[in-house]
């Protein structure tokens, strides 16, 4: 696996709002739909064996092996201040790249890829929960629901994150 190409994908986050139409990988966490720009997504994984990491922040679920690379798993539920996932509930992961490091975002389920027009985009409502506002770049109005756009770098920049 070559990681030489990966850095080129960075830096897209800030521009999400500007361009006309954007592709997002959608996912659901606690019945809420979220989206991540498709270019930042490396992989979608099903259930994985995860090694717990003692003394790590609670949001860090552990680490796993993805084709010979070690990926740090982040429980997005805990990161968003949601209750922990019930044990029997299935989970899926989206692997993203941040500054050459791979992170696996554990969510409830991963949906399809949507191409969304910037006309449906809106900034975060001022009343949005502060933890969500911190990690979201904005909201897309879909036909029957709202999709929260997650900013990967902000999502991974939580307490105890040291200089990369």
């Amino acid at each position: 696996m070559s990681n030489a190409k990966l850095p080129a994908k960075r830096g897209k986050t800030e521009e999400t709002i500007v361009s006309g139409s954007q592709d997002f990988v959608t996912m659901t966490i606690a019945d809420q739909m979220f989206g991540i720009p498709v270019l930042q997504v490396q992989d979608v994984l099903g259930h994985q064996r995860i090694t717990r990491i003692p003394l790590a922040p609670p949001e860090v679920a552990g680490s796993l092996n993805l084709r010979g690379r070690i990926v740090t798993a982040i429980d997005v539920r805990l990161r968003l201040g949601l209750p922990a996932r019930p044990k029997d509930k299935p989970k899926m992961s989206i692997v993203v790249d941040l500054r050459g490091e791979l992170y696996s975002l554990i969510v409830d389920s991963v949906g399809e890829v949507l191409s969304l027009s910037s006309e449906d985009f809106e900034r975060n409502p001022a009343t949005l929960d502060i933890r969500w506002r911190e990690v979201s770049t904005g909201i897309y109005r879909l036909n029957n629901q709202l999709m929260v756009v997650l900013d990967v770098s902000r999502l991974l920049n939580f307490a105890n994150m040291e200089a990369a």
Partner: peptide
């Protein structure tokens, strides 16, 4: 280890074992 875990002094790194699992 990943940058977000580097402050934990107890670990000098991590690795993948022969059976494919990650170990600290």
């Amino acid at each position: 280890v990943a940058p977000i875990l580097r402050h934990i002094e107890m670990f000098s790194g991590n690795t993948i074992l022969g059976d494919g699992s990650v170990i600290m």
